[in-house]
Design a protein around this nucleic acid. Structure first.
Length: 416
RNA sequence: GGAGGCGUCGCCUAGUCCGGUCUAUGGCGCCGCACUGCUAAUGCGGUUUGGGUCUUACCACCCAUCGAGGGUUCAAAUCCCUCCGCCUCCGCCA
């Protein structure tokens, strides 16, 4: 069930059931084809037949029709079972992924320098305290209006979000991504195909009356963008930078990260999404990670890159690299971005395929999809506030961001 | 929200009233070949997608596919139902 078990091959029973259901699907399909062929041949004779001959033929045709119907029903049933089993099966985990739970990740790289606040002679304030001093974050009214884990970004906080989003979209566009504004409400098929209705389902908002799901990331509408399409190999890679609100129920996180805006029910995010040939997926995964590193480096944040362990992978990723920024008041690295290689998992479920020519023959096969966070706004704000704070509660604006904030170099506390 | 129209194998399109002759028409585009200094033009042939059987491979054949799913029937692009999408008009609205 868990990814760590998948890695050790404990889904063997599921795979066996899947294979046998698929074989049943195939064999009943063959039988259906044969019966149908017979039926068609007989059907051609009927209009031409004489009166007495006709009665005989109609009787035979009636029997054949019943047999066809039965074979068809069996085929449908086997197909359904195959599909149901397939949807239960998680992606195959990359062999290099560390086995274990959330804490069993491997640190791949460390970047930047952690500030020594003691040496600087002051104790760092946490992001909420800073946010309130700057007039940037209002969680009290967020809770009044919408409940816990909701917030307002106000004044310079709102400007900072817009600056971050613009900077992120600019970087992605520069790298060749097509900017996309996506739907935040999707149909069940998009949600299921992307892999969010499995063990992640409890964290998804659902609008029962209209049977819409609120997306937790623009990965969903971007993955489903080419649903049921066949893409020419020459068009790959297709790269999209989506910007959308993200909604997460955060079930089972009571008491976790309750302060401030680190973990919230609604936030905005710029997400990178790639469609590539399967053989190019690993290289693309690395590229997505590189773009994330470029982004965090530009924001002058100290961070580490981890190889997420099997138990924390989710259903759709075969491998996941997270970039975790240092959060001074927590004394640890926390996830800011996440790059997943889904291989053909999502493409199979959403029926996105590629057409390539091999030895002069056209071949259609599933392609690979990958996604990576560029900027999840609230967490990025948390990291910027805490890492770039000054003794008086001001926050230094990283140089890269200044053009997007009207040249502002420092955010300063406002009088209450 | 109300009323009406529409959805055919890349694009356009015939066929749907009246079920079997649809193995889905024609044009455009595209691919191949021929012809021609080159190009163009012309002629001939090919050109939905998926699955399967057979095969070293090529080929050949079978089944499904006329927006999707169901139903009626010996037989459905064609008749009936549900759903999805698009268009027009009305209402409401940022």
């Amino acid at each position: 069930m868990r990814a760590s078990q998948r890695a050790r091959g404990e889904d063997v029973a599921l795979v066996d059931a899947l294979l046998s259901a698929d074989e049943r699907r195939r064999s009943s399909g063959v039988r259906f084809d044969e019966l149908r062929s017979e039926q068609k041949a007989l059907g051609k004779l009927i209009p031409k037949a004489g009166a007495d001959e006709k009665a005989e033929l109609l009787k035979k045709a009636g029997e054949l029709a019943a047999a066809v119907k039965a074979a068809d029903a069996e085929q449908d049933e086997a197909k359904e079972e195959t599909q149901a089993l397939l949807l239960k099966l998680g992606n195959i985990v990359h062999p290099d992924v560390p086995v274990g739970g959330e804490e069993d990740f491997t640190v791949l790289e460390t970047h930047g320098t952690i500030r020594d606040f003691a040496a600087e002679g002051f104790a760092p304030k946490d992001h909420l305290e800073l946010g309130e001093l700057l007039g940037a974050i209002d969680v009290e009214r967020g809770a009044k209006v919408s409940g816990s884990r909701f917030y307002y970004l106000t004044g310079v906080g709102a400007l900072l979000e817009l600056a971050l989003v613009n900077a992120a979209i600019a970087q992605a566009t520069e790298a060749g991504f097509t900017p996309m504004l996506t739907p935040a409400l999707v149909r069940p098929r998009a949600m299921e195909g992307t892999g969010f209705l499995g063990q992640a389902a409890e964290n998804v908002y659902h609008l029962e009356r209209d049977d819409f799901y609120l997306v937790g990331t623009s990965e969903v509408p971007l993955a489903a963008y080419h649903m049921d399409e066949i893409v020419d190999a020459e068009q790959l890679p297709l790269r999209y930078a989506g910007f959308s609100p993200c909604f997460r129920r955060e079930a089972g996180t009571y008491g976790k990260d309750t302060r401030g805006i680190f973990r919230v029910h609604q936030f905005d995010k710029v997400e990178m999404f790639s469609y590539v040939a399967p053989e190019d997926a690993q290289a693309e995964h690395q590229r997505l990670l590189d773009w994330e590193k470029q982004w965090l480096t530009g924001l002058e944040l100290p961070f580490q890159v981890i190889d997420v362990a099997t138990g924390d992978l989710g259903a759709s990723a075969s491998r996941k690299f997270d970039c975790e920024a240092w959060i001074p008041t927590q004394g640890k690295y926390r996830e800011l971005t996440s790059a997943s290689n889904c291989d053909e998992f999502q493409a199979r479920r959403l029926s996105v395929r590629m057409r390539e020519t091999v030895d002069g023959k056209q071949k259609v096969k599933p392609l690979a999809t990958l996604n990576g966070t560029l900027c999840a706004v609230p967490r990025t704000i948390v990291a910027i506030f805490e890492n770039h704070q000054l003794p008086d509660g001001s926050v230094r604006v990283p140089e890269m961001l200044r053009p997007y904030l009207g040249g502002r170099e420092v955010l300063e506390p406002v009088a209450k």
